[in-house]
Amino acid sequence: MNGRGVTRAGGPGAAATSGPEVLELRVAGRPVASYTTRPDLSARHAPRPYLHPVTTLAGVRVSELLPADHPHHLGVSVAVPDVAGHNFWGGRTFVRDQGPTELANHGTQRHERFGRLGPDGFTEELSWTAGGGVVLREERTLRVRALAKTAWALDVAFALTDATGAGVSIGSPATNGRPGAAYGGFFWRAPKEPAAPHVFGAAGDGEAAVHGGRGDWVALAGQGWTLVFAGADEETRSDPWFVRAAEYPGVGSSLAHERRLEIPAGGTAVRRVVTVVADGRLDRARAAALVREAVTS
């Protein structure tokens, strides 16, 4: 390991069938999420595989796709606004000293193949392409499992490997001069409801208390549902949380909050986020107990 979760790349992953374009994931026999590998989307949305819809075990939808306020939000995905100057987040690009600007620099995450593939998850190989070439190669692992009669866990790990041979620099609007906008990495867009969801976490209550913090976990509680997000390893827990509730409901783990993340030539950055998906509005004690179980099981 080489600082902030960066390691040297290993050998190539095992190849397998390219797999289905939409994969249904199940917990205890119940469908809880659909994973789309090759979405037909405008280049401005930075096309990428995503999970949507995601539901609780009782069938309450807890993800949002192409919302009117931010049409480039794609359910649950890995999205980064600045990878070597290319936008893999979608929407406007924030350029240093220029503000939000429309640039034709959007990238695409291309599904290459599945490794292990089943109703409880998969491993996947992807290429991040922009400007006529591949800037990153990714190995993604996703697993779902039951926690309780009313809760399940989504475990997402991703390893981003430099494909340029020269190293890759990952940034965000915050590292380009826009304080507070440190989004980029794992991101979950939740449904917008008449009232903003309640936000709480290990560090306190309210959006202001948890946004930008490094608490072990943060939670959104909406109408009949709760999502609890946790970094599942030391490097991921060192990344601050990006949290929105009043403007729109969304939570992410920020790869580039205060400074850019530098992946050296041939190096790999690894992160893992586990999310508890629960029916009802959990209190702090129950949220903490479930997320501990989810991370350690």
Results as ranks from 00 to 15, higher is better:
residue 61 R to P: 12
residue 143 R to E: 10
residue 107 G to K: 02
residue 93 T to E: 07
residue 48 R to H: 02
residue 51 L to T: 02
residue 58 A to V: 00
residue 102 E to H: 08
residue 168 V to D: 11
residue 119 P to C: 08
residue 133 G to M: 09
residue 147 L to E: 02
residue 107 G to S: 05
residue 158 F to D: 05
residue 146 A to R: 13
residue 115 G to M: 10
residue 164 T to D: 09
residue 129 T to P: 00
residue 109 Q to F: 00
residue 118 G to A: 13
residue 103 L to F: 12
residue 112 E to V: 15
residue 112 E to Q: 11
residue 58 A to R: 14
residue 151 A to K: 10
residue 88 F to Y: 13
residue 77 S to G: 06
residue 80 V to Q: 15
residue 112 E to K: 07
residue 66 L to E: 12
residue 99 G to V: 02
residue 115 G to E: 10
residue 49 P to S: 08
residue 137 R to G: 12
residue 112 E to M: 11
residue 165 G to L: 11
residue 134 V to T: 15
residue 67 P to T: 04
residue 84 A to D: 08
residue 113 R to G: 05
residue 63 S to V: 03
residue 162 D to L: 02
residue 155 D to V: 06
residue 133 G to K: 15
residue 123 T to Q: 14
residue 90 G to H: 04
residue 175 T to F: 05
residue 95 V to I: 05
residue 56 T to W: 10
residue 72 H to W: 15
residue 94 F to M: 02
residue 57 L to Q: 09
residue 83 V to S: 02
residue 106 H to D: 12
residue 65 L to T: 12
residue 94 F to Q: 04
residue 154 L to H: 01
residue 154 L to K: 03
residue 127 S to A: 14
residue 111 H to M: 11
residue 147 L to S: 03
residue 154 L to I: 08
residue 161 T to W: 00
residue 145 R to W: 06
residue 108 T to A: 07
residue 160 L to M: 12
residue 170 I to C: 00
residue 79 A to Q: 10
residue 157 A to Y: 03
residue 175 T to A: 04
residue 121 G to N: 03
residue 63 S to I: 02
residue 82 D to C: 01
residue 137 R to D: 15
residue 111 H to I: 14
residue 136 L to K: 00
residue 120 D to W: 07
residue 150 T to C: 04
residue 52 H to T: 06
residue 57 L to C: 00
residue 140 R to G: 08
residue 128 W to E: 13
residue 69 D to A: 03
residue 47 P to L: 08
residue 91 G to C: 03
residue 157 A to R: 15
residue 111 H to E: 12
residue 80 V to P: 07
residue 131 G to D: 05
residue 83 V to E: 07
residue 148 A to G: 07
residue 168 V to W: 06
residue 138 E to V: 00
residue 86 H to S: 12
residue 164 T to E: 10
residue 49 P to K: 03
residue 71 P to C: 09
residue 165 G to E: 13
residue 59 G to E: 09
residue 152 W to S: 01
residue 47 P to Y: 03
residue 50 Y to S: 11
residue 47 P to H: 05
residue 106 H to F: 01
residue 111 H to R: 10
residue 124 E to M: 15
residue 170 I to L: 03
residue 175 T to K: 08
residue 61 R to Y: 00
residue 179 P to I: 01
residue 54 V to F: 01
residue 60 V to N: 13
residue 137 R to T: 15
residue 51 L to D: 04
residue 48 R to S: 05
residue 107 G to L: 11
residue 102 E to T: 12
residue 62 V to W: 04
residue 176 N to I: 00
residue 140 R to V: 11
residue 58 A to Q: 12
residue 81 P to G: 05
residue 110 R to I: 13
residue 57 L to H: 07
residue 146 A to N: 00
residue 161 T to C: 02
residue 105 N to K: 03
residue 101 T to G: 04
residue 66 L to G: 01
residue 116 R to K: 15
residue 76 V to L: 14
residue 124 E to R: 14
residue 100 P to H: 09
residue 75 G to K: 04
residue 115 G to D: 09
residue 143 R to I: 03
residue 175 T to C: 06
residue 90 G to C: 09
residue 144 V to Y: 04
residue 100 P to N: 08
residue 133 G to A: 14
residue 119 P to M: 07
residue 170 I to W: 00
residue 167 G to D: 07
residue 140 R to F: 01
residue 89 W to E: 15
residue 59 G to I: 09
residue 166 A to I: 00
residue 127 S to T: 10
